[in-house]
Design a binder for these strands. Sequence first.
DNA 1: ACCTGAACACCGTTCAAGT
DNA 2: ACCTGAACACCGTTCAAGT
Lengths: 193, 193
Amino acid sequence: MTLAKDSGRRSGQRAGLDRQAVLDAARAALDVDGVDGLSMRAIARRLGVSPNTLYSHVESKTDLLDGVLDDLLASIDVPPAKGDPQRALFSLMISTFDVLCAHSDLVPLYLARQGSRGPHAQRLGDQMDTLLDRLGAGTSTPQARRALIIYTIGSAAFAPGRDAVTSALDMSAVRDNFVSGLTWMLGGIAADR
Amino acid sequence: MTLAKDSGRRSGQRAGLDRQAVLDAARAALDVDGVDGLSMRAIARRLGVSPNTLYSHVESKTDLLDGVLDDLLASIDVPPAKGDPQRALFSLMISTFDVLCAHSDLVPLYLARQGSRGPHAQRLGDQMDTLLDRLGAGTSTPQARRALIIYTIGSAAFAPGRDAVTSALDMSAVRDNFVSGLTWMLGGIAADR
DNA sequence: ACCTGAACACCGTTCAAGT
DNA sequence: ACCTGAACACCGTTCAAGT
C-alpha cells in the first residue's frame, strides 16, 4: 500500500537522486494530487526518501516551485517571429494560457512570487518583446508586455481548478472569454501605434 | 511582553467575541504582519483566546478569508453612474487596484478561490455592468467585466509586496503600467461598440 | 452558545551524525 | 556529497467537557 516508505536505507546509502529527479517527482505529485501534493514531505514520500534529503538537491520549497514552474513553461511552443506580429502574439499568449490552465491551482503561487525569472520565462519575454517591437509598440513595449503577461496569468488563475465541477462547455466559455480580453488588449496596443 | 496569552479564563467564561471582532482582529494581523499573520492561531493569540474558539464565529479559515476580503472591498468608493461611462469605469478600476495593492500579498489567496461572492464584490460587479452597458458593450458586457476584473486583480497581485524593497518611484511606475493596460483594454472594449 | 485543554494529522526546515 | 533520525516551531481542525 504505502509505496516505498521504509526503503531500508541506512544513513550512508545513496538513493541516486538529483535536482531533476526531485523536480520530476514534484510534477508527478502536482498532476496526481494537485497543489496539495506539492509538499516537501509528500514529494519525499513519493521518492521513498526522508523529507530532509530534498534539501541536498533544492535550496528551499520556493526554489523547488520555481523549478517546477519553469519546467512547465518549457512546454510552451514559441512560434517563429514571422508573418503578422499581432497573430503571432495572439497564439503565443493562447499557448501560455493553455499550459497554465492545465495547472491553474499552481498559478496563484506563481503570482505570489511575481513571476519566475527562469530561463524559459526569459525566453518567452524576449519573444514577446521582438513581436511587440514589430507590431510598432515602440517605447511602450515593456508596459505592453507586462500588461499581456498579467492578463494571461490572471486568466489562468481564474480558470476553474482541477476539483471544480466544470463541463467542457464552461471551460470553452472561459477560454473564449480569455480570447475576448486578449483581442481587446492587443487591439488597444496596436491602435496606439 | 506576550499580550494577553494566558487570560486566566476558565472553560465557561466568555470573551465577548462575535464574527466582526474576529474579522477585525484578522485585518489588524494582516496590516501588522502581512499574510503570515493570517493564521487561526495567530489571530486567536491576538484576541487572547484559544485557537479553536474562532470556530464559534467562523466556519473555517476560508470563510474567514472571504470575510476579510469583502471587508476590504467595502472601502472602495463606487462613483455614481453619471457622466462619461469610460471615465467612470477607469476610476472605479483604479480605486479597486489601489485598495488591493495595499494588501497585495493577500490577493493571490483571493485569486486561488476565484474571487469573492461577498456583498461588496457583488455591488462592484453590478456597478461595472451598468457602466459597461452605458458604454455600449451590449452583449459582451459579461466578458468585458470579467476581463477587467482579471486584469485589475492580477495587476494588484503583481504589485511589489510589503516586504519588497521598493522606492516610491517603482511603485508609481507599477501604477502607471496598470493604467496603460487599463487604457488599452477599455479602448478595445469601446472600439467594439 | 461560547469557550477550554488535549489531541490528530500535518507542515518547512535545521542539526548532528553516518558512509 | 548524499542521506538518516530526531527535533523545532509551527499549521487547521475536531472532540469532549465545562458553564
